[in-house]
Every structure is written in C-alpha cells, then in structure tokens.
Design a protein around this nucleic acid. Sequence first.
DNA 1: GTCTATATACTGATAGAC
DNA 2: GTCTATCAGTATATAGAC
Lengths: 205, 205
Amino acid sequence: MATMTSAVRRPRGEYRKSQARRKEIVEAAVEVFATVGYNKGSLREIADRVGLTQAGLLHHFSNKELLAQAVLTWRDEDALALLGVPLPTGADLLRRLVDLAAYNERNPALMELHVVLSGEAASVEHPLHGYLVNRYAQVFGLVRAAFEQADRRGELRAGVDVDSAARTVISLMDGLQLQWLLNRGGVDMALDVARYLQSLLAVPL
Amino acid sequence: MATMTSAVRRPRGEYRKSQARRKEIVEAAVEVFATVGYNKGSLREIADRVGLTQAGLLHHFSNKELLAQAVLTWRDEDALALLGVPLPTGADLLRRLVDLAAYNERNPALMELHVVLSGEAASVEHPLHGYLVNRYAQVFGLVRAAFEQADRRGELRAGVDVDSAARTVISLMDGLQLQWLLNRGGVDMALDVARYLQSLLAVPL
DNA sequence: GTCTATATACTGATAGAC
DNA sequence: GTCTATCAGTATATAGAC
C-alpha cells in the first residue's frame, strides 16, 4: 500500500507499464520462492512465468536479492493491511491476529513463502538475514505495544509479562504455520491462537 | 544412541574405521547445513572439512539426500536422549521440554540446523519433506501423550485441550528458536516455555 | 524494454585407476 | 577407501544489438 505514484514526472505511460511489469514479476517470484525457497528459486523460472528471459527480468530488478526484498515487503504490507487501517491498538489488535491466522490458513502459498524464507534466512550468512532481523524487531514492537496498551486498559489478566506474551504469540503463529504445512488441514491455527490469547485476556476475545 | 555394533561380523577394523569416518562426515555436514541449508550446502564443502574429496565422501554416503537424512536422525536421537532414558511420562516429560529448550539455547548451531532445515523442507518438493512430516507426527504423538497422561493423573488444569496444548507447545519451541536466531541473547526460551506450561498445569513445574 | 550470446562459476554424480 | 578426471546440468550477471 501507500504507493508513491509520480514522485518523479515521467514521459508517457512507460513508468506505469514498468510498474505493472514489476508487479507481475513479484507475483511470479512469490510462487517460486514459496515453492523452493530463495537459494533454489531461479530467476529463469520466474522470468519464464511472466514471459520474459532471465536477462529481461534483470532489467526490472537488477539482482536476485533486490527481487526477493521486493517480495518480502509486498508480503509484509499485505499482512499489515489485513490488521486494519488505521492500525487497532490493545486487545483490538490482538483480536486481529486471530483474523490474520485465519487469513493465512486460507492462503497456503503465503504461509509457505513465510516459513521457507524465514527458515533459510535464519542463518546469519543468508542475503535476507538482515531484512528478517529488522522485520521481527518491528513485529515484536507492534505486538508488545498491543499487550502493553491492553494492560493499561485493564484488558489483561494480572501478572502477564508483556514481553514474554509478545514473544509467545509470535512464536505460536510461526510454529503453527510450519505444522500446518506438514499436516495440511490437521491444524486450526486461528483456534489455537485464540485459545492462547484468551488465556491472557481479562475480557472476551 | 542405541548403536547396533556388529550386527554383521566384519574382517579386521575396517568397519569400525568406516563408522568413525561417517561420524566425522555427519559432524561436518551439521555445520554446513546449519549455516547455509540443504540446498546451498555443498558436498565439496563438507568433504573439505574432513580432508576428503567430494568423490571420496560419496563413498560413505552415496548421495546428498542420504547424508542429510543421517544428519537429521543424528540430531533427533540427540534430542531424544536428552529427554531421558527411559522416556518420562506425563508432567515429567513436559518438564524435560524446558530442559531441552535450555539445552538448545546453549547450542546455537543445533538451533540453526533445526530452523533452517525445517523451513526449507516445509515445501512439499523438498527432498527432506517426507522425513520432516514423519518426524513432526512422532513429536506430536509424544507430546500429546504426555499431556494426556498428565490429565489422567490430575496434573492438568480443568478444560485443557490436549491436542491444542501439544500443538501450541511445539509451535512455541520452534518459533522461539527462530526468534532467538534473529535476536541472539534477547530471548530466554526455557523461561517462556516454562511459563506457558505452568499456565496449563495444576502442579508446580 | 527485451533480446541473444556469453562469461564465469558451481553443482551432484559417475567411471575407473591405485 | 580415496583419488583424479570428467560430465552434464544449472546458476547469476554482463555486454551489446535491436
């Protein structure tokens, strides 16, 4: 979201066309990286899916890492938009996490993308490691703030450690996605997340 | 553990030597796969670390997938041994999960191996996918059984869903390892696992 | 903006000598 | 058991024509 359309004036419709191309490429890259990961996902395969040669693709994203970063920011913006605009606070945001889990469950390709890339990039040497470190710090900040607001509003049970709660609910959402992928249909992610959150909240979810 | 020494009689010490070689190779493979994953981890790199050529390595493990499976079973046996022999039951086993989390935290390389390979192999097309599916089914069975035993012994709070609890604690342990790798030292895994388990138990941890 | 052609590098696996 | 040599495949990235 929040595209920065025409920050620079361009002749004719070329820019718009190029933008559309980039979007096509990112969508194809999502599929490929989700299926085989970053390391094994090839630019040729992605280029094929949008009817380009590999060299043609590199005109739009000058190297593989830049393309992968575009994929990750696209996915992050998608998830963030799902949490609601403007972003809810306190227990309201925590409730949205349940919706997000349900949304993920309806989009296995997105889960696969998330799980596969997060796993690969957990290694310090991975090209996307830095991006992921940053991303998790932001996610943690967001969830922790929600618990803190909930606490101040009396929506939280007594004795809940907000740091631990934030880490736990994030771990839960990540780990459930892995288990879902290994046991499709055998896991109800939204239900498990809701159950855990309810165990911390003093108000109904 | 539980080596099957001399199920077949062999001439001289060749078998023993070969066994030692295999162990060296697996140890080197743990490092390499942990650092860059299965897809990017190369047999040449592993061979170099034990002073072999790539062809020499393939004498001991006839292809890459077999070597990776040896790595995974080695790691699983290690973790299982840490839970205790014979395997505890009920709340006792759940307590051991906290020890396992603490053990993992002292061995980042093992965490990296687990997180990176699990992520990669979440994809259906990955050579290790089948192994991982099987492994998670076993782990789930083990933890679920522990909750069920705890329930029968009155060690569990009322209203705890054993399936959901098993999925949740497994997700928690997996997700915390990812967060630990992205924020080294900023996560106390054993504490968070203990906190969650205590919230389900009617007895002290 | 897209192409062909190419440089350069690395991969897993096999054949066969020692 | 380990080696050398080699094959066939794949990869990213660049140069330059159109």
